[in-house]
């Protein structure tokens, strides 16, 4: 089964749940920015939870299908059309041979996931098919999808009937996140939190932080009152997905999936995993507020998510 990309849009990459346990090699974890949306897309097709699919950033993506198939589109609110006719997202879509699927520019959110039956057939390295552009990974693992590229997937006949049962073929509305220009993200204070001044810690919690346009898969960069009281850190320390690091000019950033493994500036803590998925959908100009989260509640939430999707995220 295959399809040809007509337009790749600003940035479309192959992603799965990323490389686990490879930090000692200096490799980014990579992986879907919004894991929940990614997992829903595979679930709708009854795929294994972590098979590779496409992460379409901002939309502007167009693909023509060689054969009839069923796909799933979940995540950012991109207007979806098949041969020019409007279709819904957050569900499976039946595509006939020769039809063109288009994801228009996202009206809200930033990243949409396009899953294929059985998952995309792509190269894998260090246990993952996730593309990380800054690392010089071999072959196609180091670059985004481009126009003219042929996508192939493992045809999976059993999953083709999923859309016939409408209950199974869509994400129930109560599970679709509310989107808007304001969001609150929970984090756990850690690292050099206690070495920053009380005023700076208070600023992190009270300021309205604006997501800047230079945010990418490496980090969500924020604008607000400069936090200048942090200690000068000589040696880099290990990072996790969600680590909040403050640069020399006092601006904080939140490390995302394509982060380095270690970082050399003072750090304030880490955003909780479920909230990182939400931050992954925050467009430039969105306003972010930080609140201190509850680790126990986060663990319960992680356990629920894992058992629902049948994966250890």
């Amino acid at each position: 089964m295959s399809a040809r990309v007509i337009k790749a849009g600003p940035l479309t990459t192959v992603q799965d749940l990323g490389r686990k346990g490879q930090a000692r090699l200096g490799l980014s974890p990579g992986g879907a920015m919004d894991r929940r949306a990614f997992l829903w897309a595979n679930r709708l097709l009854e795929n294994a939870p972590d098979v590779p699919s496409l992460e379409v950033t901002m939309g502007g993506f167009e693909v023509i299908f060689e054969r009839s198939t069923t796909i799933a589109v979940v995540g950012a609110e991109c207007p979806v059309t098949v041969d020019g006719r409007a279709r819904e997202s957050w569900r499976t879509l039946e595509i006939q041979a020769g039809q063109t699927l288009r994801l228009g520019f996202a009206r809200s959110g930033l990243r949409a996931y396009l899953a294929f039956p059985g998952g995309l057939q792509v190269a894998s390295f260090a246990g993952s098919a996730s593309v990380v552009m800054r690392e010089g990974l071999p072959g196609s693992l180091g670059r985004p999808v481009s126009g003219g590229e042929i996508l192939r997937w493992h045809a999976n006949p059993e999953s083709l009937g999923a859309s016939a049962d409408s209950h199974r073929g869509l994400v129930p509305p109560r599970f679709r996140p509310a989107r808007g220009p304001f969001l609150t993200v929970e984090f756990i204070p850690a690292y050099e939190w206690t070495e920053f001044s009380g005023e700076d810690c208070e600023s992190l919690l009270s300021a309205a932080w604006t997501v800047t346009p230079v945010s990418d898969r490496v980090a969500c960069r924020l604008n607000g009152p400069p936090l200048l009281s942090g200690p000068k850190v000589l040696d880099s320390a290990p990072l996790v997905d969600g680590t909040i690091q403050v640069l020399a000019d006092g601006t904080p950033l939140v490390f995302m999936r394509d982060r380095p493994t270690i970082g050399g500036y003072a750090k304030l803590g880490a955003v909780l995993p479920a909230h990182l998925d939400r931050l992954a959908q925050a467009r430039p100009g969105s306003v972010v507020r930080f609140v201190v989260g509850d680790p126990d509640a986060a663990r319960t939430e992680a356990a629920r998510m894992d058992s629902f999707f049948g994966v250890r995220t």
Partner: peptide, 16 residues
Amino acid sequence: ETLPAFNRLLVTGHPT
């Protein structure tokens, strides 16, 4: 996973 870096050690475990 464990990740040593200088005088720090990151110990990663699954939250559940």
